[in-house]
Amino acid sequence: MLEINFSVFPELETDRLKLRRADVNDINELFAMRSDPDMMKYIPRPLATDLEEASTHLKIMDEKITSNEMINWAITLKDDPKMIGTIGYYHIKPEHYRAEIGYMLLPDYQGKGYVTEAITKVVNYAFTTMNLHSIEAVIDPENVASAKVLEKCNFIKESYFKENEFYNGQFLDTIIYSILNK
């Protein structure tokens, strides 16, 4: 079975980005993302209502990174330490050599290719360093922008599930995209 160990947190770089561990200095940006109804429109989770909730979310992420259950990076521009988004593997299934990728980017930074750049880097990391066989992305069918980014990154639409999640009093559809380590 695959062994996961994030005891030394991997910082990654691309041409324009630095992917680092999120810390307390990122609370305002984390809160801005998780409290924005437009940003959370396709993510079936409650909106953050205050900085304390964002802080709790960061602590939970840290605990899960420490216990090797997930890994999440703060996305920053190389010349600015301010977090502009997040990307990571939220559900790692070592027994299946598979993980689920997720990402968010503050509105001012969307449409500039940053998510594509970050996905390409963390997919490469997953296949070469984590030794994953496959990566999945679970998205809302209405999230056309995310579907386009995944397809640009060579993810394939694998399935469409009708009303397979229940959130906030309603059943939601999901689409799963995936990429294999070839």
Rank of each mutant, 00 (worst) to 15 (best):
P46M: 13
L47M: 08
T49H: 12
L51R: 03
E52L: 04
E53P: 00
L58V: 01
K59V: 05
I60Q: 10
I60C: 06
M61E: 06
M61P: 00
D62A: 13
D62T: 09
D62M: 12
I65M: 13
S67Y: 06
S67G: 04
I71Y: 11
N72E: 12
A74W: 10
A74T: 02
I75R: 05
L77D: 06
K78T: 03
K78N: 13
K78H: 07
D79G: 04
D79Q: 10
K82S: 15
M83I: 04
G85T: 01
T86R: 04
G88D: 03
G88W: 05
H96T: 04
A99H: 09
E100H: 08
I101F: 05
I101K: 10
Y103L: 06
M104D: 14
M104H: 08
L105V: 05
L105I: 02
L105M: 14
L106C: 09
L106K: 14
P107F: 10
D108R: 14
Y109G: 02
G111S: 06
K112W: 05
K112E: 09
G113I: 02
G113V: 00
G113A: 07
T116F: 01
E117K: 03
A118S: 11
A118E: 10
A118G: 07
T120L: 04
A126S: 11
T128Q: 15
T129M: 14
N131L: 14
L132G: 03
L132P: 07
H133Y: 07
H133M: 03
S134G: 04
I135G: 06
I135K: 14
I135V: 11
E136Q: 14
E136G: 10
A137H: 01
V138C: 11
V138F: 02
P141E: 13
E142R: 03
V144L: 14
V144Q: 14
V144E: 15
A145F: 04
A147K: 07
E151T: 08
K152C: 00
C153N: 15
C153E: 06
N154L: 00
N154W: 03
F155G: 00
F155I: 00
S159R: 10
Y160A: 11
Y160M: 08
F161A: 09
F161W: 06
E163H: 09
N164A: 07
N164P: 02
E165N: 11
E165T: 09
F166Y: 15
N168L: 05
N168G: 03
Q170P: 01
T174W: 01
T174M: 02
S178W: 01
